[in-house]
Design a binder for these strands. Structure first.
Lengths: 107, 107
DNA sequence: CAAATATACCTTGACAGGTGAGGTATATCC
DNA sequence: GGATATACCTCACCTGTCAAGGTATATTTG
């Protein structure tokens, strides 16, 4: 059973930031890892993922650089910034908070 | 502290259905009760609320009728349908499920 | 060798839900 | 008479999601 993705809406940024807290990575890998982490129950659609990268970079929460792969397709790596870590802390708290509220409302 | 409402997006219908499971009510009252239930930490904006009512009625999850108030402003009451109860059960399960997934992803 | 698959990136346009801003009307309270 | 509370509604805009399309390289398979 896969979940209704609308429920995840608004958490995309937090998911990506959380992942990048553990070190730099690139789009394709991030997506794979997220699928794996959730036993293929959840994946970020590519378009959603790259949209989020643009958004996060524009707001200064992540930075990107091209890897210099000798072989294979080029990869664009992402780093989380200090502002990104701060933002993530906030988003995580909001998640904890909204979880309590929704549990209260959905009897 | 109030929460980022984007996190609630997609749960509006579930919140309303949950409320109506306990009996008929009308928009203004529902909104008040939700605020009260969450210690004013969460409210559905009016526009959101009425948009949701239209959506839920169009998809047959709720039905509406005008109350015959002798005094005061008229009220449009809403009843949850059998389909609505079924849908709510599903939405509640999805919430439980997505909660697990997000907790896994937001370390 | 050719085709298929996996890796890896990207953009565009459409859609859906949320919401600010605006509106209507009735009743009460000072 | 004016403010406030109750009670409803609509419209236009914004934002995030995502299906569908595209590019390019490397490996596997028939």
């Amino acid at each position: 059973m896969s979940i209704t993705f609308d429920l995840i809406r608004g958490h995309t940024d937090a998911i990506i930031l959380s992942y990048l807290c553990d070190g730099d990575s690139y789009g394709y890998q991030i997506n794979k890892d997220i699928m794996k982490a959730t036993d293929n129950q959840f994946e970020l659609k590519e378009a959603t993922l790259y949209t989020a990268f643009r958004r996060l970079e524009q707001t200064g929460l992540i930075q990107s650089y091209w890897g210099n792969e000798a072989v294979g397709a080029r990869r664009r790596y992402y780093t989380i910034t200090d502002a990104g870590r701060d933002a993530y802390t906030g988003l995580k708290q909001e998640w904890q908070h909204s979880k309590v509220i929704l549990d209260k409302l959905l009897t």
